[in-house]
Amino acid sequence: MKHCLQYISRYFFAILACVAFTQSVSAQTENDALMIPKNFFCAAGLYTHNSWDKYWEGTFKRENLNLGTISSNVYAVGGNYGLSNRVNLLFMIPYIKTNASAGTLRGQSGIQDINLAVKWMAIKQEVGSGLLSLHAILNGSLPLGNYQADYLPLAIGSRSKSVGLKALINYQTGRFFVAGSGQYLRRSNITIDKDSYYTTEMHYTDQVALPNMTNFLFSTGYRSLKFNAEAVVTKINTIGGFDITKNNMPFPSNNMDATSVGAIFKYSFQNVAGLELTGGGSYVVDGRNVGQNKSFFAGVYYVFSVKKDKSDK
């Protein structure tokens, strides 16, 4: 019985670690302190719906009847492999379709970027009545699709290559936890289909320098072998950029900031080891040059061993 419970627990923690990476396509976050065990793989499928009809033009909140409601549907596949009990390798590939409910702008669709990450649990130790862990995550993205980046707000991505470094700290006592993370993200220049463009000055080039970004997260909630619930607050900030000019379209190098609140729920099937469903949503409560987005997601995850351990025989 003891061995059986240990085996079920390994599946449970592995699934949670997989969910953390694939819950958000835009931020590419790895926000769960739980790790996939060595020689286990988590396969994930995720659907996300985003929509907004109001946005911030600089700091001025407005709507545009020529756009109506901007929406996107995201279909993503991903995975998380336990290279060791302290090192995980993660990937995600999303297919995105965008739409505007009014006006003449047509949505885009296609494969966006491949998102890759290496997650290292540097510290794990008992502190007081709980368990403290510290993680370092190196992540990055490469564009896969030949989509148009300067077609905001209907572009499916920025076509920028990126690399980021994140620190994550988590403290759990009993079934309750609190976690926080901070990340710095560098983004490469992109090439657009224009020979010149205007920001706050004229640029006679097809190269656009995107501002780098930071993002911070705070989460707290309840974890058990069967059910999990957590509340999440995130803040994304570009370091530089310029505001959308009056009645103009957004541009990839705008200063885009957003603060959002959300919730995540997870359910593990006790009679099917390794299978879990997850769902949740988020809402942008404050921003700059971004839409006031409402997001809902649902996903299915399955964890399995790719190499049998002697202890599992």
Rank of each mutant, 00 (worst) to 15 (best):
Y171Q: 07
C18N: 09
L16R: 15
Y11N: 06
N66D: 15
T238Y: 11
S181W: 01
G274V: 02
V77C: 01
A167H: 10
S181M: 08
A155F: 03
L67T: 01
A33M: 11
D53M: 05
A43K: 02
V19Q: 03
A149K: 06
E276Q: 11
T214V: 08
I192T: 12
S158V: 14
A43R: 00
A149G: 05
A298I: 02
L185N: 09
G45N: 08
D286F: 09
G262L: 06
I156Y: 00
A258L: 00
N247W: 04
K308L: 12
R159E: 10
K54V: 14
S181N: 06
N80T: 08
Y198S: 05
V208M: 11
D53Y: 04
T214Q: 15
D257N: 15
H203A: 07
I111D: 04
F12W: 11
S305V: 05
V87C: 06
L275Q: 07
D286V: 06
L185S: 08
G291S: 09
I239N: 15
G180F: 08
F12V: 14
Q23H: 06
D53E: 13
K2G: 14
L132G: 14
Y75M: 03
S71M: 05
S219P: 11
K2D: 11
T234L: 04
Y95I: 07
Y147H: 01
N255T: 00
Y198A: 03
I8D: 11
A14C: 02
E57M: 09
I264E: 15
I8P: 06
K97Q: 14
C4M: 15
G103Y: 03
D257T: 01
G291C: 10
Y197A: 01
W52T: 12
N293W: 04
N248T: 07
V87K: 00
Q108L: 00
P143M: 00
Y283K: 12
Q292I: 13
N39D: 05
N254E: 01
E276M: 15
M256W: 08
N215W: 10
A136S: 14
Y302S: 08
G103I: 05
K294F: 08
M1W: 11
S71K: 12
R186A: 11
E276K: 03
F218Q: 13
E126M: 13
C18D: 14
L142K: 08
R187I: 07
Y301D: 05
Q28L: 12
I156S: 02
Y283M: 09
Y95H: 01
M256A: 12
K166L: 10
V284C: 13
T59M: 12
R10Y: 01
K294E: 09
F41Y: 04
I36N: 07
V25Y: 15
P252W: 10
N85Y: 00
F176I: 10
K54T: 13
F13D: 07
Y75D: 03
S129E: 09
L165P: 04
